[in-house]
Design a protein around this nucleic acid. Structure first.
Length: 431
RNA sequence: GGGCGUGUACCGAAGUGGUCAAACGGGACGGACUGUAAAUCCGUUGGCUUAGCCUUCGUUGGUUCGAAUCCAACCGCGCCCA
């Protein structure tokens, strides 16, 4: 058993509840099949790269023959985890949460094997046990085992009470009971002996470990492990691109944009990310980094990272297409585009809008085009972009805000490549 | 239930009758330099048919020639007392 050793070698262990987790897992695993779990908040119908660390944790568990369980918090999502949050969460409707649970299930199915003969993955919705539980039962059976003192001492509570003006509602205060009880149920019914989570989850994880010990007595022995919260070397939040989260599904973040996100990783981060997120052997990563240090301008490490990640998340075909599209758009190949290449770009996950030919022939203002393509939120913003020299049609700077696009700008008679800034490409095709 | 306080643009935070589309900081975005990096520098950051007009300062209503600023009620939030 080398789950913790594996994770540690990748720099993915922040804190452990027991220094000998691997050994303990081996002992328990010898007697019966064991499982490990991580929770996912259904705040959206998809997961983003910020959730990826937890997924990686489960993937390593599965590789070690431990059944990975993902809890999709249909119940806890209705409450809102205060950990790491400065402000009270906006409550979601039950319908929204139910829909999000479905979406997240779909994402997880791509990373965990559900048909693994030895350690099949499983998705569990904690609404299964909370949905039917009455408030009275909850207070008697769960609440009784929690002491206010230790609840107040949790970092997630203290920081809100002391540091922030926000305070905290009773609803969020009780979150740790819910997550603690999740762990207990999984421990009892699914043989789940280990909980994984981001470092902000420590308080919630220990709440579960304590609850299991109290309810199960001597035999109750659950384990917890937290993984580091990922931040960029320059201190920015990880996983945002142009202010938006980078998602793991193509409908929210195009494979091309996903590839580009990783490709733009700064030097100071690329080594960590390769270790964290890819399954490349460490020796190979070291060799790659040695190359990278010699000639950083080649961005070999970033290219490899982007390729591996896109491959892992969107598949080999999408990755190859993203590489090809990047070559075309950033290699200055826009002028040489032909109809086939345009077709390819669209297929390669470059965000595309389609307009009627008549619109183009009627003289379509670039300003309007930029807004419709999603490069600017308003015409004013589009005009500002132009004034600053940040809008390009077919890689040529637009200098006149009153410019109208026409059929003449169509590359190979098929499409116009619109670019905002360095990073945002849109393909406009005619129907 | 009572007292005190608070609610401003993405976030933090000034402004307390006109000169306020609203200082400043952060973030974000654009440009320059580079390596689609970092750091640094410059610029932008409510909308529009842009020398002008329109909509914003918790909500609604009022006072006033004129309100983010004054008044009333309501809503949200914080702290304290019960």
């Amino acid at each position: 058993m080398s789950l913790v050793a594996d994770l540690a070698s990748r720099g993915l262990v922040q804190q452990v509840s027991d220094p000998a987790i691997d050994q303990r897992l081996a002992e328990m695993g010898a007697k019966r099949p064991i499982a490990a779990y991580a929770g996912f908040d259904p705040t959206a119908d998809s997961l983003h790269v910020g959730n990826f660390v937890a997924i990686i944790g489960l993937m390593y568990a599965q590789r070690n023959g431990i059944r990975p369980i993902a809890i999709v918090g249909g119940a806890t999502g209705l409450i809102g985890d205060p950990s790491g949050k400065a402000a009270e969460r906006q409550l979601q409707t039950k319908e929204t949460v139910a829909r999000n649970v479905q979406g997240i299930r779909g994402v997880l199915e791509r990373f965990l094997r559900f048909d693994d003969p030895k350690a099949p993955a499983q998705i569990v919705n904690n609404l299964d046990w909370f949905g039917a539980m009455s408030a009275i039962d909850f207070l008697r059976d769960v609440g009784k085992h929690f002491r206010i003192g230790s609840m107040l001492a949790k970092d997630s509570v203290r920081s809100r009470m002391e540091a922030s003006e926000e305070g905290m509602s009773y609803t969020e205060f009780s979150y740790q009971l819910l997550q603690g009880f999740d762990f207990y149920r999984l421990y009892k019914d699914y043989g789940c002996v280990l909980q994984l989570g981001g470092s902000d989850q420590w308080g919630n994880i220990t709440a579960g470990i304590d609850l299991i010990r109290k309810l199960e007595g001597e035999g109750g022995n659950a384990l917890g492990l937290t993984m580091p919260l990922i931040a960029t070397a320059s201190g920015a939040k990880f996983g945002k691109s142009e202010g938006n989260a980078v998602w793991l599904t193509a409908d929210r973040t195009k494979p091309f944009d996903f590839y580009q996100f990783w490709l733009r990783t700064e030097d100071a981060d690329v080594a960590r990310y390769l270790r964290y997120f890819t399954f490349l052997p460490l020796e190979e990563i070291d060799a790659l980094l040695a190359e990278h240090v010699k000639s950083p301008e080649k961005r070999l490490a970033q290219k490899r990272l982007a390729d591996e990640m896109t491959r892992l998340v969107h598949g080999a075909a999408a990755a190859e297409q993203a590489v090809a599209a990047s070559g075309t758009l950033y290699g200055g190949g826009v002028e040489q585009l032909d109809a086939a290449a345009v077709e390819a770009l669209a297929g390669q996950g470059v965000a595309t809008i389609t307009v009627l030919r008549a619109k183009l022939e009627g003289g379509w203002l670039v300003v309007d085009a930029a807004v419709e393509a999603g490069l600017a939120k308003s015409k004013g913003e589009a005009r500002r972009l132009i004034a600053q020299g940040g809008l390009y049609v077919n890689n040529v700077v637009v200098t006149d805000a009153s410019l109208a696009l026409g059929a003449g700008q169509l590359v190979a008679g098929a499409a116009i490549v619109l670019r905002g800034g360095k990073k945002n490409y849109r393909l406009i095709r005619v129907a």
